[in-house]
Simulated assay, not measured.
Amino acid sequence: MADSARILQTLVVLAGLAVAVGIGWVLFVFVPDGNLARLLGVVFAVLAGVLGARAASGLAASAFADYDVAEVAVEGPITRDGGGGRLPTTPGGTPADDIVDQIEAADDDEAARALVLKLNTPGGEVVPSDDIRIAAERFDGPTVAYATDTCASGGYWIASGCDEIYAREGSVVGSIGVIGSRINAAGMADKLGLEYERLAAGEYKDAGTSLKEMTDDEREYLQGLIDGYYEEFVDRVTDGRQLSDEQVRDTEARVYLGEDALSIGLVDELGTKREVKDRLADRLDEDEIEVRAFEPEKNVMERLRGGSQAVAYALGAGVANALAGEDGSRVDGFEFELR
């Protein structure tokens, strides 16, 4: 299928190039008089040919696609903007909105009959994770989550919305839980002679602020938010995985290696990417399938920024990890994380 599609694409591109060059030659070379006009005409004819070839290439790719499965990667911490956190604790991931855009682009592409979500993430923010899950659920066709190294917390929140979950034997899967965190700097502030002065409207507006001790009421309030997120997480998994409420809660936010995750129903099968493709080929009633990676376009500055984040992680992970975790949904200084 792929070879014949590529041949057809090449023929369409060549035909488009020939037609565009022919039209350009007539308009810019044959009709004008004078050597300078003809020289310029040749240039314009070549440009017309290039534009025609590009248009024909897009038409050919759409009409004679050489793939039938779309793959979208979810890698690194899951955040709205793709950042790794307030401090360089980890390299940044792909922005959640970009991942959603790629899933929707695959859904709009008639050639993409199935979707593979390749997951290698420790988790991240709650709502961006849910946005990705919803986009995958709306995909019109079979959806498969493929866990590579890590599919934890927010990553599993996403995966549980797919039709099937594959993992490797060495994959780390699970962590169905929510964590809230804050830096208690009240003691340090006292030593430095700093005093927290409250100017706020609303009793719980500054709950979790690091420069003051937390009251019992504030702790109960924030724990209630965490419990609410946890209940939502459990509901997502029980609905998507056909597991009982008790089975999900019994995991107690543990992570599992592939074999154990399979035995308790967190994943459907263990296998390599090749085996995932073979399984999808069976579902699509094809002898073999081709997969195309849908990726957001990145300019030069974005690529350089990604490299600098990796360097920052290598240089600053030690001290940064002692000070801050992954970004989560936040209430003032208090963070909520799916990890």
Rank of each mutant, 00 (worst) to 15 (best):
A5P: 07
Q9E: 12
T10L: 14
V12S: 03
A18K: 00
A20L: 01
V21L: 15
V21P: 00
G24E: 01
W25H: 09
L27T: 11
V31A: 05
G34D: 11
L36K: 04
L39Y: 06
G52Q: 01
A53R: 02
A55E: 00
L59Y: 07
V74Y: 13
V74P: 05
E75L: 09
P77T: 11
T79F: 06
G85E: 06
L87S: 02
P88M: 00
T89K: 00
T90H: 05
T90L: 11
A96S: 14
D97Y: 04
I99A: 04
D101Q: 09
D101K: 15
Q102W: 06
I103N: 05
I103A: 05
D108Q: 15
T121C: 05
G123Y: 07
G124Q: 07
R133G: 01
D140H: 09
G141E: 02
P142S: 10
T143R: 12
A145T: 06
T148C: 01
A152C: 13
S153W: 02
G154R: 14
I158D: 03
G161S: 03
Y166Q: 01
G170N: 13
G177P: 05
I179Q: 05
R182E: 04
R182H: 07
N184Q: 08
A189D: 12
D190P: 04
K191Q: 14
L194Q: 14
E195C: 01
E197S: 08
R198L: 06
D206N: 12
T209R: 10
S210V: 00
E218T: 07
L222A: 06
D227H: 09
Y230P: 01
D235C: 00
D235K: 03
D239K: 11
G240A: 04
Q242A: 13
D245I: 01
D245Y: 06
E246K: 10
E246Q: 08
Q247E: 15
R249T: 12
D250Y: 03
V255Q: 12
L257T: 12
G265L: 03
L266V: 10
K273N: 02
R283E: 13
L284T: 11
I289S: 04
E290R: 00
P296E: 07
K298F: 14
N299W: 02
M301A: 15
L304S: 09
V311R: 14
A314W: 14
A314E: 10
L315I: 15
G318F: 13
A320F: 04
E326C: 00
E326T: 10
G328P: 01
D332W: 10
D332T: 09
